[in-house]
Simulated assay, not measured.
Amino acid sequence: MLSLSPDPAIRHRPAPLRLILPADAPEAALPPVGVPVTRLSGQTMGTYWSVALVAPGGPPPLLLRRGIIAILDDIVASMSHWDPASDLCRYNAAPRGWVAVDGGLAQVLETALAVAADSGGAYDPAIGGLVDLWGFGPPGPVAAPPSAAAIAAALAAPRWNEIRVEPARLWQPGGVRLDLSAIAKGHAVDAVSRYLSDRGVTSHLVDIGGELRGWGIKHDANPWWVTLEQPVGRDGRPGGILTRIALHGWSVATSGDSRRFLMGPDGARLSHSLDPRTGRPVPDDLAAVTVLHRDCMMADVLATALTVLGPRAGPDWAAARGIMALFVLREGRGLAERATPALAALAETH
């Protein structure tokens, strides 16, 4: 078995396939032979959602789909920064003081603030003003990057460390604009997965905009395998080893700039991932960061935090916390990879 190196970044020779098999997976019942995989899908949070499931004798697919849509609609009504009527947008527009919100929003924000504190502000849920300034928010794209003065003004606004959270209300210090894009989809994946498990659907794969969680196995005794999208180098061509991950009781999320970016005046790629500490896009040294975690919400937010921490501080920060992460670095026109020890222990290349 060949393992990924957890040490300094190493360029890999092309390999047909890398498999990541998480350890300590919970026991799973084998569905009856011949039970088909049912697929449900739709739109939410500005992206797609998709569920694959095996449910012999379980609730009808139409009933499950209605339940999934209801869960996703509730999360949008609570956490969308695009819907002016959402709890989050009401908070953003509120003057200084306490704002009553849905309890789910308060719980997610509490987790977001803990990651912000642990990462030294590399992740900041109060980044809404900067996101809009760079053209990645509800106001839409901008013709040119913002001025240094505009960035400085956004950085001078209250930040994450001035927010307070109680079970059903949030403290608005005045001027804070939340953006939970880096954690809400992962939270939604977890919520849908719990809903399915609670209804006896013990074999399912949930995917919302590329954030995934799997549970159980299929009738051929295989877990839910997912293949990571290959990131692109500075030459625009995809590269890196093709990677497949077995998801049973695990989630995976990736942060990268291969699809969403802004072109600077010099023709350089400006990532949609902003560094809340500088107010500017992160350098394009990192093509992608993938995190494997039991909770999709944590995989989602940690992938963003690690992207901002970058190719040097990020792997060390993740390794110190036992985080399973794969960093794909741009070196010249090619790509290189670095895995944390926790992920390297699970990987084998064939």
Rank of each mutant, 00 (worst) to 15 (best):
P6A: 05
A9D: 13
A9E: 08
H12K: 07
L21H: 12
A23Y: 06
D24I: 01
A25M: 13
E27M: 06
A29G: 12
P36R: 09
R39T: 15
M45Q: 08
V54T: 15
A55N: 11
L62P: 07
L63V: 13
L64D: 00
L64N: 04
G67E: 14
I75D: 14
S78M: 07
M79F: 01
M79L: 14
S80D: 13
H81M: 05
P84C: 06
A85S: 08
C89Y: 00
C89S: 15
Y91A: 08
N92M: 11
N92E: 05
P95S: 14
G97V: 09
G97L: 06
V99T: 13
A106E: 07
E110D: 15
A112P: 10
A112T: 01
A114R: 15
G120S: 01
G121M: 09
A122Q: 05
I127H: 06
F136L: 13
P139N: 12
P139Y: 10
P141G: 02
V142N: 07
P145F: 05
P146W: 06
P146L: 02
P146F: 05
A152L: 13
A152P: 03
A154V: 00
L155F: 05
A156D: 15
A156R: 14
I163V: 15
I163D: 00
V165M: 13
R169V: 09
W171Y: 12
R177S: 11
R177N: 02
R177M: 09
I183K: 00
A184R: 00
G186R: 02
S197D: 10
G200V: 05
V201D: 04
L205Q: 09
L205T: 05
I208Q: 03
G210S: 07
G214W: 01
G214K: 02
K218M: 12
H219M: 11
D220W: 15
N222W: 06
L228F: 04
V232K: 10
R234S: 02
D235E: 12
D235I: 11
G236M: 11
P238F: 10
G240M: 09
I241H: 00
L242I: 02
R244H: 12
S251N: 08
V252P: 01
T254Y: 06
L262F: 15
L262S: 07
P265D: 12
D266A: 14
A268L: 03
S271L: 10
L274I: 13
D275E: 04
T278W: 07
R280Y: 09
D284G: 10
D285F: 11
L292I: 10
R294N: 05
M298E: 12
A299W: 03
L306T: 03
V308D: 01
P311Q: 04
G314N: 10
D316S: 15
W317Q: 03
A319E: 02
A319P: 06
A320G: 08
R321A: 07
R330D: 12
A336T: 11
A336Q: 05
A344G: 11
L346H: 11
H350L: 13
